[in-house]
Amino acid sequence: MDLVLSILLGVVVAATPLAFAAIGELVTERSGVLNLGVEGMMIIGAIAAFAATYGTGSYIIGSLAGALAGAAMGALFGVLTLSLMSNQVATGLALTLFGLGLSALIGQSYSGVSLPRFPQVHIPILTDIPFVGPLLFGQDGLVYLSIALVAGVSWFLASTRAGLILRAAGENHDAAHAIGYPVIGIRYLAVMFGGACAGLGGAYLSLVQTPLWVENMSAGRGWIALALVVFASWKPTRVLGGAYLFGGVAILQLHSQALGLRVDPQILSMLPYLATIVVLVVISRDRMTMTLNAPACLGRAFHASS
């Protein structure tokens, strides 16, 4: 029982940064923009959050700094792709290159320092319930924030007028523009929201998962977040499920080794990627469901002169 509990707690920690980054990218993509620079925004969020927390001693300010830095990276991407019409795929890759370099540069003065443990919620009685207590009521604040964000995005996209407009911009930007919606403005907000979420994901890495700064510490998680969005077929709630599934595979892989199962780590490490491909095929198999899910204008530049 203890082992199961601790495995589950480990899954939560592995899944949360993925959930943050993926829910942000989902909003970005639903507005019709494909930002492949998630990795770069995450790592900038990680160093900003670490530096701010180290400087102020406040995890709240640190997390905010991570979100703001990510949003700034998102805005940079927006200026390039939305205002200056550069190609989204190439710009996203350049954003990652830039982010990794800049974070390493800023981080030079923070190598070798570490932070105390991120505080966890403790609600008397509730948290003390065996098994369920620590799992549901004993996490850190960012975990709850990630779940709230997913729920919020889900509600926003499905039930609000603003959400409808955002989706319209992603489905048919010419029509949205003709009706009078500011397509570029909407996409700016979406890209910056995506950056802020990726920044929070990075903050989770440098504040909670391993409370220290090391170069390249995002180690490819931004790319997994990108896969997750497709894996979730652009549905917010499925992003959360997917993040926990990915996190689960990663953690179980490690546990199976510690239990002494003879499996090659390289083969095991391939599993999440292969699983994504399989899911992609399954959800895309039927042309109708795919068309219903994917934003029709995803990745297409929009320009209107009037």
Binding site: G10, V13, A14, L205, Q209, T210, L212, V214, N216, M217, S218, A219, R221, A250, I251, L254
Partner: peptide
């Protein structure tokens, strides 16, 4: 070198 994975392990 993958701090996240090392911590998970």
């Amino acid at each position: 070198f993958d701090p996240g994975k090392e911590a998970d392990a």
